[in-house]
Write a protein that binds this DNA or RNA. Structure first.
Lengths: 252, 252
DNA sequence: TACGCCGTACTGGTCGGACCAGTGGACCAG
DNA sequence: CTGGTCCACTGGTCCGACCAGTACGGCGTA
């Protein structure tokens, strides 16, 4: 098998070298969160480039959540602690890609949420179980306010579950996709005549999940959670995709 | 319950508004991949800001993989198709500093891969099954070449599965995490004395999965797949995290 | 006519200098 | 110790300039 693969070549820009240098220094531990970078004008001297170039490098780092610049701060740009923020941003971008159907997004949620709950069933302590039950109470109260409040309480519940499941990736993906789906169908849900009924039903489902978690039956808990998500969203999913979602419940 | 929470306020920079506008136009579909943005100097006129500001906005978009600028190109900056590159970069960054543990990443893969295979068991046609078996043959051949070739064949297999599962979001997430994990432990695997044995074992596991898919038993197929991933990676995962991974197998 | 060279009019990358609002700290008056 | 003033400096933005690179159209040549 012949091998003479060439790669397209593109010029390396000066600001990229600066970004590289700073990221490497960070990877090597020479720079760590909380510390400050020299001021832009000093970086100009150190890197021997113009301020525009330094600034473009800092912009890139800032948009990646690595540093933060504040005008007037004599201490210079701050190196931020590592956070999932930038990853969340990219994940959100992914979930918003056009080619993704509502069915895929919901299928993804059914998987993520089911897995988180399955893990929670195994790992939860009694205190954590109590926390989850508290969020259910809050959720009940929020129903009498409005859909937005209910939605917030729902987030709180899922966050509690995710904390127990000890997997921040699952948590983040779940949260992101949840938000994107909500954005896609929020108007339909909020304006639905049976909005209140929907919320009550959703609460009922969440209660069942918590009971299954208490019982420690991960398989059942995950199954209930997926079933609930399916029931909640199915009316918005195109018919041909529904069997795929059902497969996630039936075959598990 | 008293509520007078204040939020820290930070100034909105001009370049951020520009990034917003362009990203929104993209989200609304007014801009799509392959199209071109006006030249920097024209954007200066449209946004009524200086070129530095426009350039900083473009830098941010470029670093997020949204656009690409080439010097001299009279068509202006190009809007890129969505790519997983930026997502992978962010995830790698976090994984390198242990913000994302190997256990979390592998747990995520076990879930995603299991789900994809579960779906595939239900949805596959005979032709697709044949395709999967072909990738197994290719995988066997690749073992005699080197680890990299084997790795490529492995990707081909998972892509075949993902195609069948009809959920590209699962596929993309799986692929990203797979790449990140591989990057973290590739050296250890490749230099392992039993590298060839590992590959053979992995092939055996893949074969079992395909057989389960042929049988149409989604539950078993997913379980086997997760078990295989666990076996394959477990030696690299810190001991305290392993029970969480086991829970994904045992409780399913 | 067909082909290839080349100039031109642009592009983005970088530079240097300028102004402004905002920040933190030193200093001072109460 | 408090509150205010001041100052040196910060980052945000703007402007004008130069350079190397690209696409394209018109040119001359065969």
């Amino acid at each position: 098998m012949a091998k003479a693969q060439f790669q397209p070549v593109q010029p390396v820009r000066a600001y990229e070298r600066i970004v590289e240098q700073i990221e490497e220094a960070l990877a090597r531990g020479e720079l760590s969160p909380g510390q400050r970078l020299p001021s832009e004008r000093e970086l100009v001297a150190q890197f021997a480039v113009s301020r525009s170039t330094v600034r473009e490098a800092l912009r890139v780092l800032a948009s990646n959540g690595v540093v933060r610049s504040r005008p007037g701060d004599p201490n210079g740009p701050e190196i931020l602690p590592y956070s999932l923020g930038a990853l969340r941003k990219q994940m959100t971008r992914l979930a918003r890609v056009d080619e993704l159907s509502l069915g895929e997004l919901i299928g993804f949620r059914m998987i993520m949420d089911g897995a988180a709950i399955q893990l929670a069933s195994r790992l939860r302590t009694d205190e954590q179980l109590a926390e989850m039950e508290e969020t259910l109470v809050a959720m009940r109260a929020a129903i009498d306010v409005d859909f937005e409040a209910f939605s917030e309480a729902d987030v709180a519940f899922h966050e509690a579950v995710a904390r127990v499941s000890r997997n921040s990736l699952i948590q983040m993906c779940n949260e992101v996709v949840r938000g994107v789906v909500l954005g896609l169908i929020a108007d339909k849900i909020a304006h639905a005549a049976n909005s209140r009924a929907l919320m009550l039903e959703s609460l009922q489902h969440h209660t069942e999940v918590v009971e299954a978690i208490r019982a420690g039956d991960g398989h059942a808990a995950a199954r209930i959670a997926r079933q609930n998500l399916y029931d909640y969203y199915a009316t918005y999913v195109p018919t041909p995709e529904r069997p795929h979602l059902r497969a996630l419940i039936d075959d598990a």
